[in-house]
Design a protein around this nucleic acid. Structure first.
Lengths: 230, 230
DNA sequence: CGCCCTACGATTGTCTAACAAGTACACATG
DNA sequence: CATGTGTACTTGTTAGACAATCGTAGGGCG
């Protein structure tokens, strides 16, 4: 087979393209997407564009109220905390259950190897294998719904990331070491310890994100920032 | 405030009506819903009906492939296990975290009181307060995304329930007692024990559902059932 | 007689065109 | 300065139509 042929509907194709443009940062937070704009830029009818937009709204990537123009969601510090806490809930429980059977998913090991081999590259290159590491752990329990839920969270995480340029704060070596330790704890059957380490791991990432976006004051930014001199 | 006024769109209204008809069992598993049928029966245009159907597909209540008629999802034993395991994942982690702060949500206490006060009623009446109990626990951690995820699972659980008539298997007193014990364990800060009890609680409910639907052989029924004499 | 192929009906995907209804912002008025 | 009005832009919904596709029933051939 020379690459699976994909005969997706137009709606899906447009959704996919918009999604990747959002993740790439081309469509930044707060960017508005009117139905007519989408329709004309992709040369489709408005109902088709409407369907594409509503698909992304359902995914949580776009935001829109009745009779209002859709816009790329703006994730403030509160949202970031919500997302990362949700990740921690899902993933720490997964670690506990994996530890019971001492099951270390090969895909996670490979993802972490990729991080280690990455030492020299651009700082953003760590994101992809990092996400792959976490997704591998989730998928290892073989629960379709849990996997789906986690993927939707990952989508929002990526959305956070594109807002941050200063990702050189990322300490690739530290990330890789913590991942390694988590895998070891699973293998040793110490689920509780693995869950705790993960909590710290995600908590640190979360606070780094929050502080990095603190200056740009998202919609849920605390009021004190309005009192600062401009 | 004398009841919030709700000016929902037509699409939402139709989705809501279809949803309740699905949950009530009026639209049973495998029931087909063509766009034209929905359009004519609600006296709306086909695109409107289409949007309503697609909304329910996104929720996981309907199932449909390209160019194929939408049908109410058929949940086999494997799906039931997947759903209940996902519930266990989310909820047991929630219990652990609630136990850390020894926080017993009042709404959950109330829901369990309602179950206790229910002793004499029809056996299906236990479902509503039971769901409310579990949802209260989830909501208590105040994480928007976790709550959303759990609610989508609850939707599928209700879908399972309507397939089963023989719900007199439900032991209301046992359910109520286990709930009570879970709340006590949270208050005592024993998250691990609470999580374990919940696992049993949900596991029992799951196996009861699976065996109750075993005769009707869902799509994921194991092959041996095909070997049985008809 | 059974099997493959084709033609048909039913259904969905998409488009064009249009009107109704709502929001947001500027403007005029008291 | 607050309030009301109005206009432009956008979305919600409809109607009708055509193409593409799926399932099935019927006809031709071995």
């Amino acid at each position: 087979m020379a690459g699976r042929i994909t005969a997706v509907s137009i709606v899906e194709a447009i959704s996919a393209d918009l999604r990747s443009r959002i993740f790439s940062g081309e469509l930044g937070s707060g960017h508005t997407l009117t139905e007519t704009d989408v329709a004309s830029s992709y040369e489709v009818a408005r109902p088709t564009a409407k369907a594409s937009i509503e698909k992304l709204v359902a995914e949580g990537l776009l935001d829109r109220g009745t009779h209002k123009t859709a816009r790329v969601v703006e994730l403030g510090p509160d949202s970031v905390r919500d997302i990362y806490l949700a990740r921690a809930y899902l993933e720490s429980e997964v670690l506990r259950r994996l530890a019971r059977t001492k099951e270390v998913p090969e895909a996670a090991v490979q993802a972490n190897r990729d991080i280690a081999a990455l030492q020299t590259g651009a700082p953003l290159d760590v994101i992809e294998p990092d996400m792959r590491f976490h997704i591998s752990l989730i998928d290892a329990v073989g629960n379709e719904r849990i996997s789906r839920m986690y993927r939707s969270l990952v989508g929002e995480v990526k959305l956070c990331m594109v807002r941050i340029q200063s990702l050189h704060l990322l300490d690739t070596a530290l990330i890789q070491a913590e991942h390694q330790r988590i895998l070891e704890l699973i293998e040793a059957g110490q689920g509780e310890a693995a869950a705790e380490l993960l909590d710290e791991h995600l908590g640190r990432a979360r606070e780094r994100l929050v502080s990095a976006m603190g200056g740009t004051a998202g919609p849920e930014a605390d009021v004190s920032s309005e009192l600062l001199p401009e």
